[in-house]
Design a protein around this nucleic acid. Structure first.
Lengths: 213, 213, 213, 213
DNA sequence: AATGAATGAGTATTCATTCAT
DNA sequence: GATGAATGAATACTCATTCAT
């Protein structure tokens, strides 16, 4: 998976980045099948054959590109998880903000992820989605367990159920952040990202927090 | 929008239905751009020219088809909203079940909706999504307001915020119902739909319900 | 095998013939893989899509074209076989001449056949070659058996062996007729086809004929 | 013809051989046009530019390669011709066996030869084929003349005609040896090569031999 | 001398759309 | 009103050849 000809690795970094960036944008704009290699190379100003030299075929290009992104995708989660000792809901709120920040700095990647969610025709779709969801699940489960042990969460909570809820709200929060038009009329418009994250967290605190303490 | 040549309206109902059904299936299976008029007419056994006579072009076909579906989409919501007087959380739970039932009986339509969610290349996408979300918002807002007035929901709840939360959880519940594989590893596997709806409702009861009464 | 869209059958005969003729020429000139659909349609002055409508794909075009030819290929053999009662060697000589005449009127087809002989990449190659060789074998075997029964051939001849010899000489005679340059320096140049056929027949008469009678 | 850059001649013999061997195999497997320089260099593990340095272009590579082979191709014929004094039909039989042995030890070369026979798109095709046929003709003509002079062949035989017949039968014998599937249904299946050669020779003895002596 | 990145014209095939019958 | 033949630009991908390093 995500193998690449050394040809590509030997390219000057600047060019390599431009190629990946242009390709990512094309996939983000049109999905996998509708993405056009022709458009890519025209915008890049390189020969069609070169792209195929680098990645073998369209599938190879996508897998490499998204595989690279996946690694980066997982990094912020780890960073937060490792900053233990903090307040549970504070960490949730930080997660919201960190994920939103990641999306802001990689809007095309998130756009691809969203398209992939309900479109069957992405190479290695199941694998990629599994990795992403798995990383989230692992991260959230640990958070929840810590939260229960430290008494910040109600002790009778079902861990799986809670993880599912957290994930749902986080996902929707991020979707709304990236494609706000989708929730016009549903979501209360808030100017500032921090306010949104705070509101979500407050809701979760009510739903999950241990009020007896 | 969704204008159609009288040619199509004059068709025998049976044929009309078959055309829309086959087209819906094609769009559900392949999305808008990848849907093939060729495949449709081949399966339908009608001339390609006929389809263009009826709907003008691919865009016209899709808009008509999804416009028709939209009306049907809204109906179950109304039905539940009008059965007032019941318990708030009971009605929420009923909504979950009714929506799941609608999806089960119109899997292709829901599949199109999901593909449309994060793919810009559907004709009138903004309009259609707006209609659907609007209908949901209107329905949920009324429910929430009733809930607060009747004392079943905590009075300090922000209505908009609450609607957003309810919608997020409902959406994810339905996505999970239609494409369960997506949440492998995240969502606790439950055999029965009713159990899932109940679990979701219970969570919401804790998060939103008025415990002081 | 050799299925064709009715689209093609409904074409005016003149056009149909021109299409097959141009395609046959292209395959004869370049073999299967090197034959170019682009060149065909350019010479024909029709749209590329049309050819694919007619035959589905390159393979379909070739199979149809060669399948049609195969039927015609077999016809002259039958005609001669059915004129029984004649002298064995006279019929052999007639076969040589009839086959050469067929080649002269279908030079492109014979050219395809020759290319197919030692080139693996023709669709249905085994089937087509089998049909041709089988038809020849059947025809020759009956001739030989008649020849032995009527006392014109030496009775101790092995039938299979004799058929093989006859076929070898016939094949080479035809190859030499169609591509005389191949045998420059080996075959004695004869102006007239009839003389060649006579010479071959005479040789066979010496090798196979019953001299005791 | 078959000029080569000194670059290639200066290569270590081992590498030179490997290059020619790999190229021969590629041409044998795919013919000239379909042979892929890309595949060759990938299998060889050398740079594409090197091959072009050595041979200029694809044409140059083929001409050099086949030119080298041609010399070897002619050698066994000479060997047999020079063993004079033997029985004519014995030498014919030996020729059959020697040629078959050559093919067995150079299957790729014979495969190229067969493809070249009826495919115009080999560089220097006419020249190469002429050389091969010429060598055969020269060899066979001398054999026949010796045979007539020594009284083993019927004196009234036309030399050219006889050479043509001998060559036809030899060629077909070899084709059948290399690609036996071609003659399924026509040629009597014999397990052992020697039996086939013997059968052919016997037939020729009957057709050409001097029975009066 | 050797490399291997870059090229761009070439390939078969699909597609929504038009329009004469 | 229905048909389906014709179109041609679009697609992913391959190839022999060149040339700067």
């Amino acid at each position: 998976m995500s193998r690449v000809q050394p040809t590509f690795d030997n390219l000057p970094e600047e060019k390599r980045d431009r190629v990946l960036q242009e390709a990512t944008r094309e996939f983000a704009d049109h999905g996998y099948e509708q993405a056009s290699i022709n458009r890519m190379v025209k915008r890049l100003g390189i020969a069609k054959g070169s792209l195929f030299k680098y990645f073998g075929n369209k599938k190879g290009l996508f897998e490499y590109l998204f595989g690279q992104a996946l690694a980066e995708f997982k990094r912020p989660l780890k960073a937060i998880r490792d900053t233990s000792g903090k307040d549970f809901f504070q960490r949730i709120e930080n997660s919201f903000l960190a994920s939103a920040a990641f999306i802001d700095s990689h809007p095309h990647l998130y756009s691809i992820y969203l398209k992939m969610l309900f479109n069957e025709h992405f190479p290695m779709r199941d694998h990629f989605l599994g990795e992403i969801r798995g990383a989230h699940a692992k991260y959230l489960r640990q958070l929840v367990q810590n939260g229960i042990e430290s008494g910040q969460l109600r002790p009778e909570l079902d861990v799986d159920e809670t993880v599912f809820i957290l994930h749902s709200v986080l996902d929707r929060f991020l979707q709304n952040h990236a494609v706000p038009s989708l929730d016009k009329g549903i979501e209360p418009e808030k100017q500032r990202l921090k306010d949104k994250a705070r509101a979500m967290t407050d809701f979760l605190r009510h739903g999950l927090g241990n009020t007896s303490s």
